[in-house]
């Protein structure tokens, strides 16, 4: 047994420990794309909400931080909300499709199984905070607490990323913590939800995607 065999053994131990427990084919590029979609979505949403167009728009919550139940049905079934809903679904779908396609491509290149033990655990761990958040937010929307949507989206998404970080790149944890912090700040400033939403889902994704891309892609 000579030196190279020793080093190869150690390398293979490390490689196996890492690959067996973490899904390391997440595409950084797809993070950048998601950020761009989110910014486009936020810009469209801004244009829809703040008509006539002005650059300093924010929601006025002076009459209390939520609408009354009687107002809710009036607010929920307006063309504006329908348009916002359409924008949100489009951004989400485009993001998921892009992540799936680019991650599949990267996994294939790296010879890692796309839907294996590690990626299943990763998705499962993310789904718990995400589904909790989605249910919570939907319930609050029907109660008229519109202002909670943006902070709660950011906070629950952040929690999902922190949970996911144990099963993919550890770097994701800090992105998660940033999203949680943004969510909490957004909760302090109701009315600026869209701005924080754009920062969290747009800017942060682009920054982190670029970071992951330069570190792990290629």
């Amino acid at each position: 047994m000579e030196e190279t065999k020793l080093h190869e053994d150690l390398a293979s131990i490390r490689n196996m420990m890492e690959r067996s427990s973490r899904f390391l084919s997440l595409s950084g590029l797809s993070g950048v794309m998601c950020g761009i979609y989110a910014l486009i979505g936020a810009a469209l949403a801004y244009a829809v909400i703040y008509q006539p167009f002005s650059l300093s728009g924010y929601r006025d919550y002076d009459k209390g931080d939520h609408y009354t139940m009687a107002d809710t049905s009036v607010i929920l079934f307006t063309p504006i909300v329908a348009q916002l809903f359409f924008i949100a679904i489009s951004v989400l779908t485009a993001s998921l499709v892009t992540v799936y396609m680019l991650t599949r491509r990267k996994a294939k290149k790296q010879g890692q199984v796309l839907w294996g033990k590690s990626s299943k655990t990763l998705v499962f761990q993310m789904c718990i905070p995400l589904l909790t958040g989605a249910t919570f937010i939907l319930i609050m929307i029907t109660r008229g607490y519109i202002g909670i949507v943006s902070p709660a989206c950011l906070a629950f998404y952040g929690l999902a990323l922190v949970a996911a970080s144990a099963y993919t790149y550890t770097d994701i944890r800090y992105l998660g913590l940033c999203e949680i912090a943004l969510g909490i700040i957004a909760a302090i400033f109701p009315g600026y939800g869209l701005l924080f939403w754009a920062l969290g889902f747009g800017a942060l994704h682009i920054i982190y995607g670029t970071l992951l891309y330069s570190k792990y892609d290629g």
Partner: peptide, 23 residues
């Protein structure tokens, strides 16, 4: 050596997943 490395960091691992991982 690889099997043991995998089992050191995972509570358990099934045959198929091991096979895919180790090729």
């Amino acid at each position: 050596l690889q099997i043991m490395s995998v089992l050191m960091v995972n509570e358990n691992y099934d045959f198929t997943s091991l096979k895919e991982l180790l090729e």
